Simulated assay, not measured.
Amino acid sequence: MELMDLLFISLGASVVVYYGVKLLLFTRMLFPNLWFPLSKTFFTSMGEWAVVTGASEGIGRAYAFALAEQGMSVVIMSRTKVTLDQVAKEIVDKTGQKVKVIVTDFTQEEVFNEIEDQLKDLNIGVLVNNVGMLPSVIPCKFLDIADLDQTITSMINCNVKTMAKMCKITLPGMENRGKGVILNISSGAACIPFPLYSMYSASKVFVERLSQGLQTEYKDRGIIIQTVAPFGVSTRMAFYQETNLVTLSPEDFVKKSLQYVRAGDKTYGSIYHIVMGWLLQTIPLKVLHAQSVLQSFQDYVKSKVGQRFTTSASNASI
């Protein structure tokens, strides 16, 4: 009997310690500036240049501005030259930092030799792998995706291949200097199997796993490689939802997420998104994957997208 009592006491104590540690780790996320402080020269100490893919709008644009405001020169990359040129002008006007524009389409196969040539002489301290694409804004089943064969190729090129190739281009210089930061933008949708966005979610799981593996391989070289997995951010991909506590503006999200750069190999970027990630992983998948839940989710997105288009049309006619 005493042995059984000892066993149960030990088990209970282990559970208390386990959840106590988890609670302590969670409370650290409430005060990132206290637990994970960054010096004013942290980013510039990594190198002169920051490279941001998908920088013409949304989260990528916000990272480019934020890093320029930290004193870094920035390379902004996307496929729309007119928009990139405008973003470059705005960054120069606001921060006075140098901006290099590289126009490229990451959905295409052979773009990385030219990118590597344009980056080879730069002292790159920060890489933000942000570029990504959804197969469809409206969530739908895999076989219902339009132009499925081409979409598969484009998504793998953009969401998977680009991230790996950009790491391959920038990591050697960081390793030689013994410092650098790589932020790979994933998605909250990668924290569970995500029906109706299955291919997108799966592509972001690749981002997370490669990031975590690379961090283990290169952390002893002074390089930080971190996955950033946002939930709601008001961007075109999220049909510009109104901002609130959960749905942040790109600028607010990036400002918050940069506070967690030293917080480990993965962050959701803000305390509210951390809570959302915990909730999604706590709710049984049988509930989340119920047909009624998926149908309601699909209907919700359709209504939001429809409202967005209606509002845009109304504004255009005023």
Rank of each mutant, 00 (worst) to 15 (best):
I223P: 09
I223M: 13
I224K: 12
I224W: 11
I224V: 15
I224N: 12
I225K: 06
I225Y: 06
Q226G: 10
Q226P: 09
T227W: 10
V228I: 15
V228Q: 05
V228S: 07
V228D: 06
V228P: 03
A229S: 15
A229L: 07
A229F: 11
P230W: 13
P230K: 11
F231C: 04
F231W: 15
F231R: 01
F231T: 04
F231A: 02
G232C: 08
G232P: 08
V233R: 01
V233F: 00
V233Y: 00
S234C: 09
S234K: 06
S234V: 07
S234Y: 01
S234T: 10
T235A: 12
T235V: 11
R236M: 09
R236N: 13
R236T: 12
R236C: 04
R236F: 05
M237P: 08
M237I: 13
M237Q: 14
M237T: 12
M237Y: 00
A238E: 09
A238M: 13
A238H: 10
F239A: 12
F239K: 03
Y240V: 06
Y240N: 14
Q241W: 07
Q241M: 13
Q241E: 14
E242H: 11
E242S: 13
T243V: 14
T243S: 07
T243H: 02
T243W: 00
N244A: 07
N244E: 07
N244R: 06
L245Q: 08
L245C: 10
L245N: 13
L245S: 13
V246M: 11
V246N: 05
V246E: 10
V246F: 14
V246S: 08
V246A: 07
T247M: 00
T247I: 14
T247K: 00
T247C: 04
T247W: 02
L248I: 03
S249W: 04
S249R: 08
S249M: 11
S249P: 06
P250M: 01
P250R: 01
E251V: 14
E251N: 13
E251P: 02
D252Q: 14
F253G: 00
F253M: 00
K255R: 15
K255F: 06
K256T: 08
K256H: 11
S257R: 05
S257I: 04
S257N: 12
L258E: 03
L258I: 08
Q259E: 15
Q259I: 02
Q259G: 03
Q259R: 14
Y260N: 01
Y260H: 02
V261F: 02
V261T: 15
V261C: 03
V261G: 03
R262A: 11
R262G: 04
R262C: 12
A263D: 12
A263P: 08
A263K: 10
G264L: 04
G264A: 04
D265K: 11
D265G: 03
D265P: 15
K266C: 11
K266I: 15
K266W: 00
K266P: 04
T267W: 01
T267L: 04
T267K: 05
G269R: 05
G269C: 05
S270T: 15
S270E: 02
S270W: 07
S270A: 14
S270Y: 11
S270V: 03
I271D: 01
I271P: 05
I271T: 09
I271C: 03
I271K: 02
Y272A: 14
Y272F: 11
Y272R: 03
